[in-house]
């Protein structure tokens, strides 16, 4: 990660310059509206891509920026998914409030977990996050009176968004809703990573020992970003529940935690759009490949991952950025 060093004179100017919207970003968001007009029959897939992208961005905040290697973020995704489902099952199917409550609940759990997370590093950190995720999974499995166990939660019914937009068969409402949430999540994440707080997170990632020496409270910072990330992952889970009216143990699975890391590596960590691009590539490839051969499509995903990691160690977006810089 080469970041041009801020000159001492105008650190705020530097930050402001970094946070300006680029042409590519604007083009990306305009393009994100294309499915409404060109690929209507792909809207259900597009909405699940947007949801997964939000989840990937939440992981990028902790993994890509703060260097907290996590293999258990599906825990927050699943907690969000189950809380949204349970609220709806209890008779309150309003999506927006459900989304907020689910996000806050995941955030609360994230805050509590963060006290342990900041005390461990490296391999131990991976084990702890993985352990948390597995524990939550087993908890949800054994509390089948609440969660429905392996059959999944039944009776989830989401009301129309704002009382107007019904979740339709084509997926217009689902994609619009998920895209809006992804946009908000990215705006918020941009704000975070292009702030002095965001810079101190990178400092933690690069050299955690040095941060206390320059007077930075790294544990506090880590707890903050971990909680924010948990809220975001919880919201992504809640979105999945609300757009599909289903919740199952699969939302908490290790597979989901691992897949999202694969998407991040594909797209490039430590750059928010890397998470989004990685998600799009992974899910579109998965959809197309599994149509061609439903049994053995994972082979091609594995091949894709190896090619990307070998030829583009910084992920697809990271390498593109590097190419662009070289040409300048």
């Amino acid at each position: 990660m080469t970041v041009e060093a801020p000159t001492l004179a105008d650190p705020h100017d530097w930050l402001r310059r970094r946070s300006r919207w680029s042409v590519f970003e604007i083009a990306f968001w305009v393009a994100s509206l294309l499915p409404f007009f060109l690929f209507q029959t792909y809207l259900p897939l597009a909405s699940q891509i947007a949801i997964t992208a939000l989840f990937a961005v939440s992981v990028d905040l902790v993994l890509g920026y703060a260097g907290v290697v996590t293999l258990g973020h599906a825990m927050f995704f699943g907690l969000g998914a189950y809380s949204a489902g349970l609220i709806s099952k209890a008779g309150w199917g309003e999506p927006l409030t459900g989304l907020i409550i689910a996000g806050l609940f995941a955030g609360l759990v994230g805050y509590i977990a963060s006290f342990i997370i900041v005390r461990v590093q490296h391999l131990a950190l991976i084990m702890i996050t993985l352990g948390f995720c597995l524990l939550t999974y087993e908890l949800a499995n054994s509390m089948s009176w609440l969660t429905g166990g392996t059959d999944g939660l039944q009776g989830v019914e989401t009301w129309p968004i704002l009382g107007v937009f019904r979740f339709d068969l084509w997926g217009y409402a689902a994609y619009g809703y998920a895209l809006a949430a992804l946009f908000l999540g990215l705006v918020l994440s941009r704000r975070i990573v292009h702030s002095s707080f965001g810079l101190s997170l990178r400092g933690i990632r690069e050299n955690v020992r040095r941060m206390p020496a320059i007077g930075s409270d790294y544990r506090g910072h880590l707890q903050k970003i971990y909680t924010i990330s948990a809220v975001m992952a919880g919201c992504a889970g809640a979105l999945l529940t609300q757009t599909t009216d289903t919740v199952s143990l699969d939302t908490l699975s290790f597979q989901r935690s691992a897949d999202v890391v694969v998407m991040l590596v594909l797209g490039g960590t430590g750059r928010l759009y890397g998470a989004v691009v990685g998600t799009i590539i992974f899910m579109v490839a998965r959809d197309q490949l599994s149509d061609m051969n439903p049994q053995y499509w994972y082979f091609w995903i594995g091949l894709l991952l190896m090619v990307v990691v070998l030829l583009m160690p910084r992920g697809i977006l990271g390498s593109l950025a590097q190419l662009a810089r070289r040409r300048d």
């Binding site: 029959t41 997926g171 599909t244 289903t246 599994s290």
Partner: peptide, 23 residues
Amino acid sequence: IRKDTGGPAPDVAKRLAQELVVR
């Protein structure tokens, strides 16, 4: 027309059903 869900995944199954119907 065959579609793969990749394990117990109701959200994927629902999406595939939607796609099969509309696309």
